[in-house]
Design a protein around this nucleic acid. Structure first.
Lengths: 259, 259
DNA sequence: CGCTAAATGACAGAAAATAATCAATAATTG
DNA sequence: CAATTATTGATTATTTTCTGTCATTTAGCG
């Protein structure tokens, strides 16, 4: 059997069952587990599946995530850890606003099943909450970016001026002494509106973003109340950020063994 | 927290996420992993969940596609035929507004890949177009109904007052001499706003809806320019509807083999 | 044909998850 | 109120799965 053919069949198998175990797949495709693993790695990079201990989960098309950038497996566990720390900042019955982005998506996943009022401009996030009976969902309309599935632009801003929330959670593309940065002009404008709509602003970002800047300046450090990062952040930056009045929440990552 | 309460919450968590990892659940319920395991054993015995290496899978009734249960196959081919007729009314580069509903969803599916500006308040429809690079997508924000995945309510109305489209396509729950009906109060209000935003209004409905009324009166017949139905409509109704100035488009249904 | 590069399968050590055990705590009952 | 039972969290031993490496096979190409 050809390689491509096998990969397609693998994806199909994973898609139909929502979960598949490794030995099962190896048997079915008549290849070794090693090969299945390698194939799955590809599927994971491509975003159609998520590997977990014991098998694979299908994550494809139903929530479209084909462009949550090349989520290196490593970065992914980073995001999960950060998300875990971030959800602790959310209380039951809160009204929260969630931005797009893969880290925010993880946060959203962990918030499922809690009693919340959720406002979002992200299609993938909205899909998560749409079937959750515990929470109310308000979608912020606007022009939907086909790449990220996020609504932004004047319509969104206008709608944001009509809502009030307790907490806004969003991710950024860069952080330095001057403040926070993002790489989409329209989105930055919308995120400013999001900040205005909230009592508290929570930024989630992995430590690789620190010290980097990006296309557009979003706001100075002091405008954000909470920043959740992984423990890759160094002490100098900690001081700078905390000196600006930002409350820092550091998520511990269990290191692999590259030290 | 009481035991029963925790168990319920656990099930709810597992249901709404399709997969949940053990540490994640333990953290969230503030109990040890041991306890979560024991609880999961119960859920497994009871049949609502399936434990796997690394976490749990929900196996109860599918929460994945809560939006319109795949209706009877018969009605479905009806909807497809109607949709086929309806898309003929849409020209390339049109700006169209699409409502929720299963028939409208079929229309949306057939419109994929064409150069259009699409405005919609339906999450399922938005998902279709979100990954379509050929068309622009504007999502109408608002309160999302968890049952249907449709945004409606004051936010939506407000946003609708800001857009103009060539054609609005929506479905209704009933049609009689007095006009059109739908069964959601908020939605009717939103649909009125949709009509105001459009040059032309196209209603799609199968013939079973004709002669029926429903909770709320939407508008008189004359406010709609096009009505697309299947050929189950009888001649009396054709006359009544056409007399009101509505252009009627009848989709021919090829009978399957139950005759 | 012979060479190179990719793909594959097998294996060993490392990591993760589970099951089983036990002490401590909370609830229940006579 | 004391005794019994159920529930819980920590710990350990065991099993399972994962990662990484290496030899072998297969496919592609000059």
């Amino acid at each position: 059997m050809l390689v491509e053919q096998r990969r397609n069949r693998l994806l199909e198998l994973v898609r139909v069952r929502r979960f598949a175990a490794l030995p099962e797949l190896a048997e079915e495709l008549s290849v070794s587990e090693s090969t299945v693993r390698r194939d799955l790695e590809q599927l994971e990079r491509q975003g159609s599946a998520q590997r977990i201990h014991g098998g694979v989960l299908y994550t494809g098309t139903s929530p479209m995530i084909p462009h949550f950038e090349e989520a290196q497996t490593h970065e992914w566990s980073l995001k999960k850890a950060i998300a875990g720390k971030a959800v602790a900042l959310v209380e039951d019955r809160d009204t929260i606003l969630l931005d797009g982005g893969s880290t925010t998506y993880e946060v959203a996943r962990l918030l499922l099943g809690r009693s919340l009022s959720v406002v979002t401009n992200s299609l993938p996030v909205a899909n998560l909450f749409a079937s959750d009976t515990k929470s109310d969902l308000v979608f912020l309309g606007g022009n939907v970016c086909p790449r990220s599935g996020v609504a932004r632009g004047p319509y969104t801003d206008r709608m944001l001026s009509m809502v009030r929330v307790r907490k806004t959670i969003f991710s950024v593309a860069g952080i330095n002494e001057e403040g926070f940065y993002n790489n989409d002009l329209l989105l930055v404008e919308t995120e400013r509106a999001m900040m205005r709509a909230a009592d508290e602003v929570i930024v989630v970002a992995d430590s690789t973003k620190i010290g980097r800047q990006s296309l557009t300046h979003l706001c100075p450090l002091k405008d954000v109340q909470h920043l959740v990062v992984d423990d890759g952040i160094d002490d100098d930056w900690r001081k700078i950020i905390e000196a600006a009045g930002v409350k820092l929440h550091v998520a511990k990552i269990e290191m692999t063994k590259d030290e």
